[in-house]
């Protein structure tokens, strides 16, 4: 399903980052994807099902959660963090700022794929840790 990806701050992300980025609580607070209930229905997934979010820049596995923030069909919301950074558009339009909000993305169910831990994610994404 085609959606617009918006990343941003959440209270849990803000809270748990103070406890350390390698904590399980931090991971659980940012490796999620808030979706409109109708969009979830359309995808045939339940609250807590893993989804794959992809753009032309990359893809990631996140846990889909039902948004409590009104109706926003066609928009998914993902907290700032390393899980989504491989997916957002790095283009700065010559002003220094990447495009963290408003990127065209594709969401599909991925119930069998696991959400990686930060360590696994970094190992997968960064060559330096594999030398």
């Amino acid at each position: 399903m085609k959606v617009i990806l918006v990343t941003g701050r959440t209270v849990k992300q803000g809270f748990w980052k103070e406890y350390g980025k390698f904590s399980k609580a931090y991971m659980e607070s940012v490796s999620v994807c808030y979706m409109d209930a109708r969009d979830m229905e359309r995808l045939g997934i339940k609250d807590g099902t893993n989804v794959q979010v992809s753009t032309k820049h990359g893809s990631t596995i996140l846990k889909a959660l039902k948004s409590t923030r009104g109706k926003h069909s066609g928009i998914i919301f993902v907290p700032y963090g390393p899980w989504i950074n491989g997916v957002v558009d790095p283009e700065t339009d010559s002003v220094g700022m990447p495009s963290f909000k408003g990127t065209q993305a594709e969401v599909e169910p991925a119930p069998e794929k696991p959400v990686l831990s930060l360590e696994e994610l970094l190992k997968k994404q960064f060559r330096k840790l594999n030398r």
Binding site: K21, H57, G81, N85, P90, L122, Q125, R127
Partner: peptide
Amino acid sequence: VASLPRKAAE
């Protein structure tokens, strides 16, 4: 590394 787009972080 947690906040930049991955390509930049790499």
